[in-house]
Amino acid sequence: MAKKESSFLNMVITLFVITGIASLALGGVYNLTKEPIRLAKLAKAEKAIKEVIPGFDRLEIFTVKPTNGTDSLIFNCGYINNELVGTAVESYSNKGYDPTQIKIMVGFTPDGNINNTAVIQQKETPGLGTKMTSPKFKDQFGGKNPKNFILKVKKDGGDVDAITAATISSRAFCGAIQRAYDAYEKENKQRVQNKEQQTQDVVTEEQEEK
C-alpha cells in the first residue's frame, strides 16, 4: 500500500478521523470507569474517617466556622441507629516544617475524648516529621480529653511526646488537633443549647396544650 500524499485534504481528514476515534474510545472508557472512580474516591475519603471513629452506618457532613475566624472545618458525624457515635473533624496546620499544609483527621467520641487521629496529607522532612504518621506518635492522643491533656509538646510544658528531633512538626500537629477540638467544643455547646431549646419548646407546647 502506498503512503498517502501530504495534501491539505488528506491531512485534515486523517487528523479528524484519528481524533474522532480517539475521543470515541475515551468516552467509552470514561463511561466504563466512572462508577469505579467515584467509589474509589468515596472509599478514600471514608477511610480516614473510619480510622478515627468507630463503625457507623450513617454519616452527616457539614462545615463549622472555627472560633478564631480562620477557614471553616469539615465535620463528619457518624451515627449508628441515629445515635451519635463519633465526630471526625478535618483540621490542618500551616506551621509545619514544609510549606505544604499538614492535614489531619481527628475523631472525637461524644464525651469529648479524642478517639484517634489520622494524617491525610503531609510533606514533612522524611525520617523526622514524617514520623507523625507512625502509631507511636499519633496513637498517644487516643482516649485523651484535651480538657486535662494539654495539647502541647512536653518541651513547651504540655503532655505530648514530641517526635525525636522534629519539634516543629510535632507542634504543628498539636496545633491542628487543638483547632479541631476548639471547633468541636463550640459546636458541641451549640448542639446542647439547641437540644435544651428544643426540649423547652416541647415543654412550653405541652403547657400550652394544657
Binding site: T125, P126, G127, L128, T164, A165
Partner: peptide, 10 residues
C-alpha cells in the same frame, strides 16, 4: 544527614 536525620541531629 539525609539518611539518618535523628542520629545526625542529636
Amino acid at each position: 544527614l539525609i539518611s539518618f536525620p535523628v542520629q545526625m541531629t542529636s
